[in-house]
Simulated scan of single mutants.
Amino acid sequence: GLATSTEVIDQAMTRLKSSLDYLLEDSTMYGIEDAGGRIEAALQSARTMKMLLVSVAAIVFLVGGIGIMNVLFVSVKERTKEIGILKALGTSKKDILLLFLLESVEIGLFGGIVGVLVSFAAMPLMQRTGIAVSPSVEGWVIALFFAVGTAAVFGFYPAYKAAGLKPIDALTYE
């Protein structure tokens, strides 16, 4: 009873069932399964899980990025006079942009390090739930780069706005 191709699986299963009926008095004790069906179900489950994880990652990316952007906009607002003084002293747009972009990257680096440290505590808890986890250095490095990358991407616009402030407007800001 082996099927030579996927098209004849149903026919092979029917033949096996009739052979069992012929050979045994009670063939209902035995079942015939298509292993391909289980494999397909497992693959579909894996695809669903992958989509779920990608969706969660996208939401984390947006929420984290918006949080970083808001923090930087507040920082720019609070330091408007400082930006005005820097511009009046001749600091270039590029330097001010880099100042705020580096601040954004620092926030992302701090958040990434805290996230990795929290994962050390969360891993044993996850293993107790029966969920398979496999901690890896690559995973922690990727998480750290993801946090820093998110901060850099979402920190660029507030940094650009800070660099674009006019010195006179920034100095007279209350």
Rank of each mutant, 00 (worst) to 15 (best):
S136D: 11
P135K: 06
P124F: 00
D34S: 10
T129E: 04
K50D: 09
K81H: 15
T14Y: 11
V116M: 09
G130K: 09
G130W: 05
L117Q: 02
P124H: 01
I85A: 00
D26R: 06
L2N: 09
F73A: 11
V116K: 01
A132D: 12
G1Q: 09
A170D: 00
L2D: 10
A46D: 04
D21G: 10
M51S: 14
Q44R: 15
D169L: 01
I39C: 01
E7A: 14
L23C: 02
K87G: 01
S92W: 07
R47M: 12
G111F: 04
T14E: 12
I107P: 05
A121K: 02
K94E: 10
V56Y: 04
P135T: 10
G155W: 03
I85G: 01
P158F: 04
F100W: 05
E78K: 11
G108H: 01
K94S: 15
K161H: 11
R128H: 07
M69D: 01
L171K: 05
T4S: 12
G130L: 05
R15Y: 12
L102Y: 12
V71A: 13
R38T: 13
D169T: 05
S136Q: 08
R128S: 12
T48K: 07
Y157T: 08
A3I: 05
L109C: 10
L98I: 13
L165Q: 10
M29F: 12
T14C: 06
K50I: 13
I59N: 02
I39V: 11
A3Y: 11
E40Q: 14
F73H: 09
V153G: 04
R38K: 14
V137E: 04
L72Q: 14
I83A: 03
A12P: 01
L62N: 08
L99M: 12
A41D: 11
K93D: 14
A121P: 09
A159K: 03
P135N: 05
S45L: 13
A162H: 03
A35I: 13
L20C: 07
A57V: 10
L98Q: 12
L89F: 13
S45Y: 09
G67I: 05
G65W: 01
E103T: 05
R15W: 09
M126K: 07
K17N: 13
L102A: 13
M69H: 02
G111N: 05
D10C: 06
A46F: 08
N70R: 03
A121V: 14
I96T: 01
L43E: 11
I66A: 04
T48R: 06
I68Q: 08
